[in-house]
Amino acid sequence: MTVVDAGRLATDFTATFGDPPDGLFLAPGRVNLIGEHTDYTGGFVLPFAIDAATTAAIALNDSGRLRLASRSQDGVVAVDLASLAPGAVTGWAAYPAGVVWALSARGVRVEGADILVDSTVPTGSGLSSSAALECSVAVGLRDLTGVDIGPDELVLACQQAENEMAGAPTGIMDQTASLRGAAGHAVFLDTRDQHSEQVPLDLAEHGLVLLVVDTHVKHQHATGGYADRRRSTEAAREALDVEALRDVAVADLEAAAGRLDAVTFRRLRHVVTENQRVLDTVATLRSSSPAAIGQLLDASHASMRDDFEISCAELDTAVDAARAAGSLGARMTGGGFGGSAIALVHAEDVDTVTEAVRGAFADAGFTAPGVFPVEPADGARRVG
């Protein structure tokens, strides 16, 4: 995968708004290696920034207006900053507008701005195109205004933008990965206190490749099953009277079963066992080759498919075909109900696994998937 041509984006910015940008800022998408639907329950996650990103060209002014444009969308969205609030902007523009709004409460004052964005992160793929968009704008506004605001606060501002302006009830995992990513590493995040550590994930050194299978089944976090699953986890937390579901241990599950209805218990069981799988994966990566985490990836997918029920036929087909063709482990990644799966494979097996997945999709009558490798990459930064 590649990133946007910054020079061309700057040229397009000038053509769109009449003047050159003050700077260009890149923020990557992410793959979540393991730890799904644990972030908003106070648990553990292990994502990494990828070598696909959104780039934002930004210029500040004193117009009192925010003008937003995207290479993938027609027209320019304009909004008066004085009226910027939840509900004032809809669609894709709610994400960058929400960042401006959330940062204003944190001392990042913008009197006016023009922003043009472009991205190589496929939307709706489960690779967090929304966080890449938010973080590219957030880093740009921070740098151009000169306000001293750290990455943890930027994470919270971007999450607020997504939750309150875009209406998507997501946690902090995606933004943390985009802002704190590092090449050759995954980001081990404790979502309760935002403590994060870099964990070695140098796939090439071990002759491994992580393939992404984009099913092209689109999902929306702002609607549908994602919000339902979040409500289920909250119901479990209240019934068990715990501060967060990460306070429930695997050994506590048997007792919890008698206090919850069957569906809520399955949701709980996924979160509790997934937290443990994250911890086990981190321990394995610190002591062994990434090849040793395959069974944990497989178990994670089974839990999401059967207990959290967020997979779909295309995701299951991708995972099953990859396993049958020799992958070391595979799972869906992201919020679910579509998006992408990942498969950990030996480098020499990439073509075999890719062909097997594409063949399985063709046999099932599904739209041909996108299959491509990703590598752990550096986080958000200025590029021009």
Rank of each mutant, 00 (worst) to 15 (best):
V4E: 05
D12T: 10
F17I: 12
P21N: 13
L26Y: 04
G29Y: 13
I34L: 11
T38K: 01
D39E: 07
G42T: 12
G43R: 05
F48V: 04
A49L: 02
A49G: 09
A57Q: 03
D62G: 09
S63I: 07
G64L: 10
A69C: 10
A69R: 05
S70Q: 10
S72Y: 10
S83T: 15
A88D: 06
T90F: 08
G98V: 14
W101I: 02
A105N: 10
G107I: 11
V108G: 03
I115M: 07
V117W: 05
D118A: 15
D118E: 14
S119P: 04
T120L: 07
T123E: 14
G124K: 00
A131V: 12
L133P: 05
S136T: 04
V137Y: 11
L141D: 00
R142L: 10
G146S: 02
I149H: 06
C158H: 13
C158V: 14
G167A: 08
G171T: 05
M173I: 04
A177T: 11
G181D: 12
Q194I: 10
S196P: 02
S196R: 06
E197Y: 11
A204N: 11
E205S: 15
E205C: 01
V212F: 09
V213D: 06
H216Y: 11
G224A: 11
Y226A: 04
D228V: 15
R231Q: 15
R231H: 03
A235H: 09
D241A: 15
D241T: 00
V242K: 01
V242D: 04
A244H: 15
V248Q: 05
A256E: 04
L260V: 03
V263G: 04
T264S: 09
R266Y: 01
R267A: 09
V271E: 05
E274S: 02
Q276P: 00
L279D: 01
D280S: 07
D280R: 06
T281L: 10
T281N: 03
S289T: 13
S289R: 09
P290D: 05
L296P: 00
D298K: 00
A302N: 05
A302P: 00
D307F: 13
E309D: 14
I310Y: 08
D316F: 11
T317D: 03
A322Q: 03
A325S: 14
G326H: 07
G329C: 08
T333I: 08
G334D: 10
G339Q: 07
I342D: 06
I342Y: 04
E348H: 15
E355I: 01
V357T: 02
A362P: 03
A364C: 07
F366L: 12
T367L: 08
